[in-house]
């Protein structure tokens, strides 16, 4: 099986993830889109590690996973706090930081 197919899959996953972030308003769903983009990135890292026979890429993928896990914890906490305060999970309602 061609390794480049993994890259294609990663690109498709990244596109779906970014489209989710850009198009959906629910912050939980946006969050899922971000996770999808992170995993697409991980896939690219692992694939290239395999292609070049270099373990660094795989190592980096673990780092990304750890950081992503931490980010999920903090991010979900923020989303819940905002939801409690404003009874809304829409990212478009949180636009206080503007000009």
């Amino acid at each position: 099986m061609e390794l480049t197919n993994y890259l294609g899959l990663a690109a498709i996953l990244f596109a779906i993830g970014s489209a989710t972030v850009l198009l959906r308003r629910n912050s939980i769903v946006v969050f899922m889109g971000i996770e999808l983009m992170l995993n697409a990135t991980n896939l690219v890292l692992v694939t290239f590690a395999r292609m070049h026979g270099d373990i660094t890429g795989q190592l980096l993928a673990f780092f990304v996973m750890v950081v992503a896990a931490a980010e999920v914890v903090v991010g979900l906490a923020i989303i819940i706090t905002i939801f409690r305060a404003r009874r809304s999970a829409s990212v478009d309602d949180v636009n206080l930081l503007q000009s």
Partner: peptide, 17 residues
């Protein structure tokens, strides 16, 4: 330039992308 700062997260994401 200030008008770019709309406060909408999705717009920032689009700009980044």
């Amino acid at each position: 330039l200030r008008r770019l700062q709309s406060g909408y997260v999705r717009q920032y994401a689009a700009q980044t992308l």
